[in-house]
Design a protein around this nucleic acid. Sequence first.
DNA 1: TAGATTGTTAATCGATTAACAATC
DNA 2: TAGATTGTTAATCGATTAACAATC
Lengths: 220, 220
Amino acid sequence: MDKSDISKTVISRLPRYFRYLGDLKDKGTERISSGELSQLMNVTASQIRQDLNNFGGFGQQGYGYNVDYLYTEIGKILGLDKPHNLIICGAGSLGTALAGNPDFINRGFKIKGMFDVDPVKIGKFLHGIEVHANSEMDEFIKENDIDIAVIAVPKEAAQSVADRVLEYGIRAVWNFSNTDLDMPENVIVENVHLLDSLMRLSCDAVGYKNKSKGKANGKG
Amino acid sequence: MDKSDISKTVISRLPRYFRYLGDLKDKGTERISSGELSQLMNVTASQIRQDLNNFGGFGQQGYGYNVDYLYTEIGKILGLDKPHNLIICGAGSLGTALAGNPDFINRGFKIKGMFDVDPVKIGKFLHGIEVHANSEMDEFIKENDIDIAVIAVPKEAAQSVADRVLEYGIRAVWNFSNTDLDMPENVIVENVHLLDSLMRLSCDAVGYKNKSKGKANGKG
DNA sequence: TAGATTGTTAATCGATTAACAATC
DNA sequence: TAGATTGTTAATCGATTAACAATC
């Protein structure tokens, strides 16, 4: 696999660059230096230059970076130059909320359909998106050229649903269930563990003052 | 501030430990060694021991770790030994989905109220939680001992809502809006940038095959 | 040309892994 | 006691920052 040699750490920062560049573009800013951007984003200029240079030279000495160009290039790296078709597995309130998020469609992520086991939900339209029965999933994925599956089912069902979409050819999974999925190497999983995130917040907020600070093994 | 000296990296791994320990506990497992846990979680045993030892010695040589005890201790570090009261700012579909998530309440995160600017929504109950007007926010926060505010409003409104809850005494913010918040040092912000996450997935899925691999400065 | 700012190498810092003595 | 496994130190690895020569 040429799954690339660029570190996960760098990749994970790209969407944030992209976000700031989009804002600059909207504001009509034409060019920006790594120094200016670093101030805006609260990171070092060095890191910005290092990060970008992983993908080739996007800037120009003495000038900086062209906002529009850099925005487009990062967009390409992020795979936003082609549209993506999604299905959402699980038409609960989280799945429905995701279906209704306008940010996704604006960036070329089209939600084509939802799936649920609940017969009451099947056939309904949520935010304009139809809920289908799982039995239709295989065909739906092929017909609609789906490349991303969103897992928004209860954690008990998550693994079996993931196995299912995998079987139907999906290789990218956006997992919102509160469990880790066991997937083969060639499947990309991006987790959004909401409860984990909330616990991190709670942890930081508490500040673990109860920590003793000294050595632990003060045995006799 | 004794905001602690434990690295963010370590903290961010704690919820995952907690999750696995919870599962082990539910399965009735009494003890586990770092080696066994490392296999389960797909990390090194060394990392587990290093991580845990930041907080003191939770294990016992020749025995391993007592699942129940470790679970409880990590829970304390995460601040789960005390209940937390939340408000959700923004009664849109995302805010509503969060209000209805049973995982949160199960871990002691109680959603006390929602807030919205839309008069149509005010007074309604969503998943049993009342939507209030923003004008009631100040008093509500004090009366209900709120310690966490969830920002689930459109990105244009995010900063002003965050400023507002800050003014009313909140020091922990769970930000779901697709923008970074500008907050003072003593306020904890945990971001859930869904679009960023989706872009990371898309990026990994694409695999940036377009990368040239050789040196970039092949100038003449 | 002079000034600015990149691309890139070298230095530093932090995080992960390995190893092993301490000890249950 | 012997075996197992931790707690912890030392070695390695990777990521960040600093510095500067290349160059627009």
